[in-house]
Design a protein around this nucleic acid. Sequence first.
DNA 1: GATTTGGCTTGATCTTTATCAACTTATGCC
DNA 2: GGCATAAGTTGATAAAGATCAAGCCAAATC
Lengths: 250, 250
Amino acid sequence: MTKMATRLRIVEVERLKTACSTCSLQELCLPAGLNESELAAMDKLVDLRRQIKRGDHLYRVGTSLQSLYAIRSGFMKSSVLHDDGREQVAGFHMMGDLMGMDAIGTSQHLCDAVALEDSEVCDIPLKDLEALSRTIPSLQQHFHRIMSREIARDYGVMLLLGSMRAEERLAAFLLNLSQRFAARGYSSLEFHLRMTREEIGSYLGLKLETVSRTLSGFQAQGLIAVQNKHLRILNIDALRALVSPHGCRD
Amino acid sequence: MTKMATRLRIVEVERLKTACSTCSLQELCLPAGLNESELAAMDKLVDLRRQIKRGDHLYRVGTSLQSLYAIRSGFMKSSVLHDDGREQVAGFHMMGDLMGMDAIGTSQHLCDAVALEDSEVCDIPLKDLEALSRTIPSLQQHFHRIMSREIARDYGVMLLLGSMRAEERLAAFLLNLSQRFAARGYSSLEFHLRMTREEIGSYLGLKLETVSRTLSGFQAQGLIAVQNKHLRILNIDALRALVSPHGCRD
DNA sequence: GATTTGGCTTGATCTTTATCAACTTATGCC
DNA sequence: GGCATAAGTTGATAAAGATCAAGCCAAATC
């Protein structure tokens, strides 16, 4: 304690708050499953915290990969750009999510990451993470799990984009958000959509008008209550039924 | 040489052929970039080779993850199943590709892997791979790159499914196949489609009739020549132009 | 070599979602 | 606090692709 205190300066207080060992997202984030001494090693790795204002980029297509980013707070989107300017939102990311993994392969970011509200991310230098995960098998394993889960999520999005109708896509989208908010201790039935209808549409492969209409339709059926970005799920079972139409499973 | 010869038995000849150190796919596959002694370590890891007959499963949804699989020869598809039986092809895989990475997160396969022609895969036990990659940084790095590239590929598919029209999807699909065949030393302009129209459609989020019509359309325009599964690209630039419509880049 | 079956093509029609357009409601800014 | 601008809703119409249907071709089977 005293030894530490001597080293502290005002800026470093800020840093200390970043420590994985005291972070409430520990269980969701990269350090999940580490013991105390391993957590301390993690703390050394994650020494920079970055503020991203709403609308600002965390990284851009073509930028060289420096670090992976763990979201501490806020909400972000990542999007791929087509040559002709069309934007496809590839994902929405919230606290505890790890971003930037698509760039490891080429050392260049392949998508843009933009904050949809003021956000805070932890900077995790890839080289350091790789070095540390060579000495901490459970960190290595967890990192692989996180990358794998991203692949699995992507497969889910492909299923959605490739074989669902507009209503199913929206229902699946709302249920996914609901579940993720729940996992972070927020209400699963009432939340704030941080993205525009256009961004939802882009993610789901629909036009914004279709998103709007479909949401209105859900409201008319009594499944949800929407007012702008405020959303309340009124009948979650009905939403689930929409995604898995007849419950006919073989 | 003589030392090795004494150790050989007939079954082991079979194994020897599996060795990464003598595999022609070395540069495409997991061992890319390893030196000789590292390659020898890889050889010990990959000790099982498996034959998959056309139509057979390499793994199924829900099966527990044992190994990752590197394709030595043949052609496979992976597909996600919707509750109601709809199938979405998530990818086509050929020699040098690594399969099964979606299952690391949950230790259970989330998709089915089926051989589209008689194939041969190398069995790579995940635990062993993780252990070895802790001692060989370049292997670790390459493994991460491969997972990352899978994520990047998925983003590309999302872009395709979310914001391209039927013609663009087909053109992008053909160009992707062409490029992958080229990377493996085959002709980039003339190849055999190993999947049915329905499987192409499933991958691209289209119905088989649309795939057929669109291919016929390409043929009518002189872009390709198709006869059943035999395909020849006649005007690759025009195909490229279809994917990036106006070349209007900002 | 005939038969069968699965895969493919092509046409006609229907459905879903996109597009175009007008208008309303928020949000942010001076 | 009002004005400007962005976001969202809703309607009318158009277009892309799905669906239904018929027939064809080719490889596998007997």
